[in-house]
Simulated scan of single mutants.
Amino acid sequence: MGLTIGEKSLFTKELETALEKNEVDLVVHSLKDLPTTLPPGFTIGAVLKRENPHDAVVLHPKNMGKSLDTLPDKSVIGTSSLRRAAQLKKRFPHLEFKDIRGNLNTRLKKLDEKDDFSAIILAAAGLRRMGWDSRVSQILGPEDCMYAVGQGALAIEVRARDEDILEMVSVLHDPNTVLRCIAERAFLRRLEGGCSVPVAVHTEVKDSQLYLTGAVYSLDGSDSLKETMQTSIVEEQVDERVQRVGVTANNMPGPAQDAAEKLGLDLANLLLSKGAKEILTVARQLNDAR
């Protein structure tokens, strides 16, 4: 039996308790909701083919046909994400950004039924899964807003000791998504980032190369560090039961996974050497004080 969740803070612990007590055998999460270090005894047994990982602009009905560029000065944009706000404040200085909370239904209702927001920013993948593609006015490319670690991918969490279940779900792994998300999660873990700090990524696999762009931002986006690195991901022998940043990808080449993890660490270390820790520490302190 599996369960699907949306709101991490409320349900993740509850679902892991059910997993621990053998009440369920697997739990389906949005990967971006899962910490880079899982509690002992759990692992991500499958990472499914990624949906569009980018963010989407959903406009108030009165603004149909516009984009973030063409919205009037001082238009208020709703987002609960520090990562989105930091990047978009820098990119669209004529706009204002305010917190909006709740699940997708709640946020869309707040947008449509009041005049508080000109638009809201949501993950394109979530809108697509709910069948609300028609509400997407604009997809934000990496030059406007890079996405969250793991965004757009679903993860199946299982008990690490359950070899049969691990074997069963391992066929669901999408190799490219696994490698991209291992690199992203390793990057975030090394930065000691989380939801409370603006960290963003962009990854792609092309011609046996894995490319990772990572960035950290101050809360207002004025201070940022961004770099890109790449690594070769060669198909070699199949791996067996090794966890990397919480992911166990059986039946996938070990060296390629190692290379992806090292890429994330190397990129994080590069940003740290340029002052990323200071930017993130200030962002975290300011956010905690809000």
Results as ranks from 00 to 15, higher is better:
residue 74 K to G: 10
residue 38 L to Y: 02
residue 112 D to A: 13
residue 38 L to N: 03
residue 64 M to I: 12
residue 51 E to D: 15
residue 96 E to A: 07
residue 114 K to F: 15
residue 40 P to R: 09
residue 115 D to A: 12
residue 101 R to F: 10
residue 64 M to T: 14
residue 99 D to M: 10
residue 30 S to I: 03
residue 79 T to D: 02
residue 114 K to I: 12
residue 43 T to K: 04
residue 87 Q to E: 15
residue 95 L to Y: 05
residue 97 F to E: 00
residue 30 S to L: 06
residue 48 L to I: 06
residue 56 A to M: 02
residue 106 T to H: 03
residue 85 A to P: 03
residue 111 L to K: 01
residue 66 K to W: 01
residue 39 P to G: 14
residue 87 Q to A: 15
residue 107 R to Q: 11
residue 70 T to R: 00
residue 88 L to I: 11
residue 48 L to A: 10
residue 108 L to K: 01
residue 117 F to Y: 05
residue 114 K to Y: 15
residue 27 V to F: 00
residue 75 S to F: 00
residue 117 F to S: 00
residue 76 V to H: 10
residue 87 Q to N: 13
residue 47 V to D: 05
residue 32 K to R: 15
residue 30 S to P: 02
residue 94 H to G: 11
residue 39 P to S: 14
residue 106 T to A: 14
residue 29 H to P: 04
residue 34 L to F: 02
residue 81 S to P: 09
residue 111 L to G: 05
residue 74 K to H: 11
residue 104 L to N: 12
residue 59 L to H: 06
residue 35 P to T: 09
residue 46 A to D: 02
residue 84 R to P: 04
residue 109 K to R: 12
residue 77 I to T: 06
residue 28 V to K: 05
residue 64 M to F: 15
residue 59 L to I: 09
residue 61 P to T: 12
residue 97 F to P: 01
residue 58 V to E: 00
residue 67 S to C: 10
residue 67 S to F: 00
residue 60 H to E: 09
residue 111 L to M: 06
residue 86 A to D: 05
residue 45 G to I: 08
residue 34 L to V: 13
residue 66 K to E: 09
residue 102 G to I: 07
residue 45 G to K: 05
residue 80 S to N: 03
residue 72 P to K: 07
residue 63 N to T: 08
residue 84 R to W: 12
residue 26 L to K: 05
residue 73 D to W: 06
residue 114 K to P: 07
residue 76 V to F: 14
residue 87 Q to H: 15
residue 95 L to G: 02
residue 43 T to R: 04
residue 76 V to Q: 08
residue 77 I to Y: 08
residue 46 A to E: 03
residue 27 V to A: 03
residue 71 L to F: 00
residue 80 S to I: 07
residue 63 N to P: 05
residue 35 P to D: 04
residue 35 P to F: 02
residue 106 T to K: 09
residue 58 V to W: 01
residue 43 T to Y: 03
residue 110 K to A: 13
residue 69 D to K: 00
residue 71 L to W: 00
residue 109 K to V: 14
residue 90 K to E: 14
residue 84 R to C: 12
residue 44 I to Y: 00
residue 45 G to T: 08
residue 63 N to Y: 08
residue 67 S to A: 12
residue 86 A to M: 07
residue 103 N to W: 01
residue 62 K to Y: 07
residue 50 R to H: 10
residue 49 K to V: 12
residue 59 L to A: 10
residue 73 D to N: 07
residue 76 V to I: 14
residue 32 K to A: 12
residue 93 P to W: 03
residue 60 H to A: 09
residue 103 N to E: 14
residue 77 I to L: 10
residue 81 S to C: 13
residue 79 T to Y: 05
residue 41 G to I: 11
residue 112 D to I: 06
residue 99 D to A: 07
residue 90 K to L: 12
residue 72 P to N: 13
residue 104 L to T: 15
residue 84 R to L: 07
residue 93 P to L: 06
residue 91 R to E: 13
residue 38 L to M: 07
residue 68 L to S: 03
residue 92 F to D: 14
residue 68 L to N: 03
residue 56 A to E: 01
residue 71 L to R: 04
residue 30 S to N: 06
residue 81 S to Y: 09
residue 63 N to V: 09
residue 65 G to F: 06
residue 77 I to A: 01
residue 118 S to N: 03
residue 36 T to R: 01
residue 33 D to Y: 00
residue 65 G to Q: 01
residue 107 R to Y: 01
residue 87 Q to L: 15
residue 91 R to Y: 08
residue 109 K to D: 15
residue 114 K to W: 14
residue 115 D to H: 09
residue 35 P to Q: 05
residue 57 V to G: 02
residue 66 K to D: 05
residue 49 K to P: 05
